[in-house]
């Protein structure tokens, strides 16, 4: 026959068991109540009321920390499930690039920043009034940058076109477009500026004796829809890094900061495994660039009255651009979900 103290202990412990998370309670509460019951009776038989009181002291401590531990585990589990299912983390099957490859992908951004710096500060070879063409082609910082990008593109094609190759391809295409109507040291360049890019493609095909790199390139374009955002990013990255007509006394610092900011955006793009994270990284990079361009507003302070503030125009433009990128990311996400559903 149970004493009132034992009956009271059982009732109280059953109540305390109600504070465990539901799943734990359903699974173990019955057993725990029974173990506690057996413990109480053994303790009471051995040491009476004082034994029971000592047991309760230990049980209250045991109950407190295990209730907290079980709720903590449950919350951590829910959080990790939420992270896995979050729209931000949903993958489109394009894995994050390893660090070494990401460095290669970001390199053209840094090289372009360096060439801008060299061009603005005059840190390049100076020529006579009419230098020969080969001197211009190899000595001008931007043209030198283009050769380096083409070398990178050639290496990537020879390696079967790993994903970092898209960074070099995007910069090479941008350069072809940009310099096909550009003059330097008395020379005017036109459509022939596309020839080096074409030459690299042909050379890679000849050396590899296979069209596999080009097939990989095309397949990657189809698989990674956010490359469209990346192409737009490269276009505007080059515009932000050029600092045309800017005479800010702190120009080198601005160029370095913009280069690093845009490089960081590109780094985030290649390191992310979900399309939304990729486009958000690019939007972040552009955001940093526009922030820096606002800081260099001092350069525009001599504009005529009534001229629209170029920074405001820039902010609106980048905002629209960011929305386009976000749309591109969402579209890539929608497509991957659709493909997932199609798999039986």
């Amino acid at each position: 026959m149970d004493t009132p103290q034992l009956a009271w202990s059982d009732r109280l412990y059953r109540r305390l068991l109600g504070y465990y998370p539901p799943a734990f309670r359903t699974r173990f509460a019955g057993e725990m109540a029974q173990v506690f019951r057996s413990l109480c009776r053994a303790q009471y038989a051995e040491a009476g009321i004082s034994g029971l009181a000592w047991l309760w002291l230990g049980v209250l401590w045991d109950w407190t920390w295990t209730v907290l531990a079980q709720w903590g585990q449950l919350l951590l589990k829910r959080r990790s499930e939420m992270t896995q299912t979050s729209i931000l983390n949903r993958s489109d099957g394009v894995p994050a690039l390893p660090v070494r490859d990401t460095i290669l992908a970001v390199l053209p951004f840094l090289l372009f920043g360096l060439s801008t710096l060299a061009e603005k500060l005059g840190l390049h070879l100076s020529y006579s009034a009419n230098p020969p063409l080969w001197q211009v082609l190899t000595g001008h910082p931007f043209l030198l940058f283009n050769w380096l990008v083409l070398v990178g593109l050639l290496v990537s094609l020879l390696k079967g076109f790993p994903r970092w190759g898209y960074a070099y391809l995007a910069w090479a295409i941008l350069f072809g477009w940009w310099w096909s109507d550009m003059g330097s040291y008395g020379y005017h360049f036109g459509g022939e500026m596309w020839l080096p890019l074409l030459g690299v493609m042909v050379l890679a095909l000849l050396l590899r004796r296979s069209i596999q790199p080009l097939r990989t390139l095309a397949a990657g374009l189809w698989k990674e829809w956010t490359l469209l955002s990346f192409a737009i990013y490269v276009l505007y990255a080059h515009m932000f890094m050029l600092f045309d007509s800017v005479h800010n006394p702190h120009l080198p610092a601005l160029i370095i900061a913009t280069t690093l900011g845009l490089g960081l955006g590109a780094w985030g793009y290649f390191r992310a495994a979900s399309p939304l994270r990729r486009v958000l990284a690019l939007m972040g990079g552009l955001g940093l660039a526009i922030l820096i361009s606002i800081l260099d507003g001092i350069a525009y302070s001599n504009l005529a009255q009534g001229t629209p503030d170029p920074n405001l125009v820039g902010v609106i433009f980048v905002f629209v651009l960011s929305l386009l990128m976000l749309g591109n990311g969402l579209l890539a996400l929608w497509r991957s979900k659709k493909q997932e559903r199609a798999v039986p």
Partner: peptide
């Protein structure tokens, strides 16, 4: 079962390890 495990643990450690239901089922 639970209670036997609890007793066995106490015995094999000469009472140094005393489990209570919360820790045991955790």
């Amino acid at each position: 079962h639970g209670y036997t495990i609890l007793r066995e643990v106490a015995q094999q450690s000469d009472g140094a390890v005393k489990l209570l239901p919360g820790t045991l089922y955790n």
